[in-house]
Each structure stands twice: as C-alpha cells, then as structure tokens.
Amino acid sequence: MTEQIAPKEQSAQSEANTAARRSRRLPPSTLIMAAGLLFLAIVPPLAYFTGNEFWLSIFTRLTILSIAAVSLNLVLGYGGLVSFGHAAFLGLGAYAVGIPVHHAINGEFESIATTNGLFHIPMAVGVCALYALITGAISLRTRGVHFIMITMAFGQMVFFAIVSIETYGGDDGLTIYERSSLPAISLDNPLTLYAVCFVSLLLALYLVHRIVNSRFGMVIRAAKGNEERIRALGFNAYAYRLLAYVISGSMCGYAGALLGNFTTFISPEMMDWTRSGELMFMVILGGAGSLFGPVLGASVFLLLEEVMSDFTIYWHLPFGIMLILAVLFVRGGISGFADRLLGAKRDD
C-alpha cells in the first residue's frame, strides 16, 4: 500500500525538510486535534443548556462513532489491514448490553441477567476480544483482497446469526428498556451520557496514541509498509497483527456498548456490512493513519448525513458520488489535506 517514492535529488529541499523536523514545531494535525477536542468539550453542553437537546444527541452519536472509527484506524490506518467487518463489533457490543437487560426484565438466563453496567462493559469488550481473536486468527492468514472479503463475510455471519435468533427480536431488533446502571452516575441524563462518551473518546485517542508509538506500534506500522522485511528482521508479523486486531475489536465493542445505551434500540441492521463501509469511509475520509483523522471523518459523515438528508431523501446519491470523487481525487484524507495546505509533513 505504501508506494516507494523516488529519492529526491535536490539536497536543498531535504535540508529544508530536516530543518523543519528539527524545529519540533507542532504539526497542524495536532493543533486541529486540540481545537476539535476543545470544541467537543464546550459546544455540546452549551447546546444542551440553550435548549438544543437534539444537537447534544448528534454529538453523542458523533463521539461514539468516533471511538469506533478510531479503533478501526488502529488496524486500517496504522496497520494497513483493511477490515471490512468492524460494524459486527459495534453490534456485538450493543447486544452485550441488550441481551443481559432483556433477561433482567423478561427472566431466563439468570447468570447473565443484569442491568449492571459494570457487567455489560467487560462483557462487550470480552465478547469482542474473543470474536476478534477467532476471526482474526483465520483472516490474518490471508492478505489483501482475501482479507477484505473474509472480514466482510465474518461480519455478515454475525449479522445473520443475530437475525435468526427470535428471542432477541431477530430482524425486528431489541429495545433496551433500561440503560446500564453505573455507580454514582445515571446514563439516563443526556448530558451525563455525553460526558461518558466524550471522556471515553479521549481515553481511546490516548490509548491508540500510546500504542502506535510504542515498540509494538512501530512493528505494526512497519509491517504495513514492508511485511517481508519485518519478518526478515525476526518479527512474527502475524502475532503482532492479531493482537492489534483484538485490541481494535475490543475498543469497537466498547463503543457498541455505548451505542446501545444511547439509542436504547438495537437491531441487526447496525451491523450490516454497509455500516462497516461507512466506518471505513470515516477513517479514510479523515485520514487513515493520523490520530485525530477518524474523528474528523466521523464529523463530516454525520454532518453530510444531517444536512443532506434534510435536503433530499435521496441523500445517498450525492454521498456516493462524493465518495467516488474523494477516492479518485483526494489523497490522505482531510488531515493530510490540511497538513499539505499548511505546508508541513505529517508526523505523529
């Protein structure tokens, strides 16, 4: 995926690049991230207090989808693994809330019947980690197109499995009549729910930041560009990628648990493969392999959805055309574009 760039002959330019790097100036993408997070910290509560509760719910959805996109970015952006099945993690995470709550209210399966969030969240993360471990172990044996299609197929497998289970509503979905109960805070309060999601997004960003810059992260990123070489150096690329996949899946499952608490209605539709496509769209549009890019991508996606669906019921048409045009003409996503515009190399 990484293309080899011909060596630049002009040493003057190289010297300039080195000088720019030496100055340790903050790259524009870091500034954008700071501004973006500040915005997310201030504006949504403000919207709520000025009576625009609708906007708060949009921002809540944004932060949750952002966490999912950030988790996908870990494997797609940094690891170069084009996973087309991440919506399944979102769905599994949501059902890890929905199913225990369903039993807590309707009986049966005493052992998992609870509305306790301290059970739901480890459940969501754990189930997704296990699912990622099993499907990852098989998918990661393959490369390229095979990997894309196999992750897609496994995602669809979960979709059909949930559809076929009548107990949990099958096709019709499942209403979560009670949100996860947590000590000291109530997710029924929209502002509290937003705060939880926002803090979770901060944590997810920090976690991915630490991971991609660690020894482990260096191996994952290097394997993206040159897998053969990382093997020749003595790394078992497969094992590293599998762990990255499991971390990514668990994180996405956590986002799913939040999503279940936010929408209080979940259905297999949320893990349809086109949902995975939308997540990928967010990551690529925002800039794969940049820390904050997926959040930007998710923002643009939701903005388009809101604006265009007001404008026309056929909003998927301009959306699809944009996607095609973006692939054909824009490289590096919004972050890359912003960095190029402001004349600096991306380096995070």
Partner: peptide, 24 residues
C-alpha cells in the same frame, strides 16, 4: 520502511534483537 526515519529503521532491527516487542 520507506516512510519512517533512518534511525527508526535501525531501531526496529534493534528491537527485533532485544526479544519480543509486545510492549504497548
């Protein structure tokens, strides 16, 4: 590793020599 720095490239080799890199 084309889009990494020269020292990053060698550091990866050093990492490989120092045992596993499951340090996150």
């Amino acid at each position: 590793f084309m889009d990494m720095t020269v020292q990053d490239n060698v550091a990866l080799a050093v990492q490989a020599h120092q045992g596993h890199s499951f340090r996150l």
